[in-house]
Every structure is written in C-alpha cells, then in structure tokens.
C-alpha cells in the first residue's frame, strides 16, 4: 500500500483529492500551512485514493500519513 506523508510539521489547510480519485506522481494533493507558508504536498507515486487520513485544521507532524493510495 502506498501513502502520501506530510513533508513537515504544520496544519492541514486543504486536502485537494477525494476517495476514488486517481493521482499521478507530481500532482499536488494537499496543502499544509506551516511557518506561515503554504506548503504544497505532492504525490511521489501514481495511484487511486483509498483513504483520507487528515482533514482541514488538523495538526500533523513530519512523516504523518495524509492520504492512502491503492
């Protein structure tokens, strides 16, 4: 199972995909806010979103799983 992790500690601004969406490596799939910056989170792999693990406003640490892909 593949997953997409937070690249740094911060607050989730927005998850840009929904369950069932196809994503490609390089697609921006979520936005975090950290250090007052918008942090785009890109997928490293191709896949289909099977689960979303975090929502807007959640604090996430570096390495936390945001999205699970099939």
């Amino acid at each position: 199972m593949k997953h997409i992790e937070a690249t740094m500690a911060g607050t989730v601004l927005n998850i840009l995909v929904q369950e069932g969406d196809s994503v490609k490596a390089g697609d921006t799939v979520a936005l975090l806010e950290s250090m007052k910056m918008e942090i785009p989170i890109e997928s490293n792999v191709d896949g289909v979103v099977s689960e979303i693990k975090a929502g807007s406003g959640d604090f996430v640490n570096e390495g936390d799983v945001l999205i699970v892909l099939d």
């Binding site: 250090m35 918008e38 785009p40």
Partner: peptide, 10 residues
C-alpha cells in the same frame, strides 16, 4: 526553495 517545505531551513 519555497516549493519544498516552504523553503524553511531544517
């Protein structure tokens, strides 16, 4: 690089 981790230094 503002595109990666906001360009914050780690």
């Amino acid at each position: 690089q503002p595109k990666a981790k906001g360009g914050v230094l780690f």
